[in-house]
């Protein structure tokens, strides 16, 4: 083999090659051990059947009589997901809530990112700090804070009653509205940061060129800035959309009993029904559902990386 021959001639080259492999190994080992293996366990359980025991599912591989190794794959859990409307509705509703939230994050995040990217250089980092600042507090505490704001005797209702705009408290907590507010609030930074990165590195002489060619500022924004920030918009949207689909804490704390999201269904299958096989099937189905947007994301990442390398 050519590399080996080269390595034999130059021990340093061999050492360097091994060194690179060793440096690359830990992240792969980490991903294998803590992401791929658990996923395979979940995949295995999803093909099992529930039973009242510990663990609460039938092992796939077992010894039958006469030393016969038997593997039982149960596809019933997946069939159940399709036949029971609850799951289909939960999936669709999750996609809807995640989609609408992503759209609002984009509408709110774009002007924010734009303003920060065009602010004086010395102001940019402090402004970015402000965007990231909420992360310094626990996510759970911030969601609880929203409960305090949105509940019937909360800050917002008290203010609206005081100002005379309403004479009865609005039911905001335990509605889809609260879920939207929670998701948009929590995921906004994930939209702003990649958008900022794209807008900040944009060559401003392109805008000068547009102006020079007779383009008014707003049109220049539409025809130059906006198309060039598409990679950032896609990156931000994926970073918001993908985790929002599987979001559990926000719908559980802010949403009502009618708020149907797949994360909540998953939770209740695992912990309320103790039906691990169905819960696992739900998890696997969600992953498959999210593969498509992740692939789109990857595609655009590669494309923009390619464009930059030229």
């Amino acid at each position: 083999m050519a590399p080996r021959a080269a390595g034999r001639r130059h021990p340093r080259v061999l050492l360097r090659r091994w060194g690179r492999t060793l440096v690359g190994l830990p992240p792969y080992a980490w991903l294998m051990l803590f992401f791929l293996v658990p996923f395979l366990i979940v995949l295995k359980i999803s093909f099992s059947e529930t039973q009242a025991a510990v663990p609460p599912f039938v092992p796939l591989v077992s010894w039958a009589e006469d030393a016969v190794l038997q593997i039982r794959l149960n596809f019933g859990n997946y069939r159940y997901l399709i036949t029971d409307e609850l799951y289909v509705d939960a999936y669709l509703n999750s996609l809807k809530i995640a989609g609408v939230s992503t759209l609002f994050c984009l509408l709110i995040g774009y002007p924010m990112a734009y303003a920060i990217a065009r602010a004086p250089r010395t102001l940019r980092n402090p402004l970015l700090m402000l965007v990231v600042l909420p992360f310094w507090t626990s996510f759970l505490i911030r969601v609880y804070a929203w409960m305090g704001i949105l509940k019937n005797e909360g800050l917002l209702n008290t203010f609206l009653l005081w100002s005379g705009l309403i004479d009865q408290p609005l039911q905001m907590l335990e509605t889809d509205f609260a879920v939207y507010v929670g998701i948009i609030y929590s995921y906004l930074p994930f939209m702003v940061l990649p958008l900022y990165a794209t807008l900040e590195k944009m060559d401003l002489s392109l805008l000068e060129a547009a102006a020079d060619l007779g383009c008014r500022p707003f049109r220049a924004f539409l025809r130059v800035t906006l198309p060039l920030s598409v990679p950032g918009m896609i990156a931000g949207s994926m970073l918001v959309f993908i985790p929002a689909v599987g979001e559990f804490v926000i719908p559980d704390l802010l949403g009502g009993p009618d708020t149907l999201m797949i994360g909540k269904v998953l939770w209740s299958e695992f912990f309320d029904n103790r039906d691990w096989p169905v819960a696992s099937a739900v998890a696997v189905a969600m992953l498959i559902l999210l593969v498509a947007p992740i692939m789109i994301f990857q595609h655009y990442q590669n494309k923009s990386a390619e464009a930059e390398n030229r």
Binding site: L206, E208, A211, D212, V224, P227
Partner: peptide, 20 residues
Amino acid sequence: IPPYERPVNMMFQSYALFPH
């Protein structure tokens, strides 16, 4: 008079071609 209303055009050092 703003750049977009002047009867001049500029060729930029970086060329500033629209990459998209």
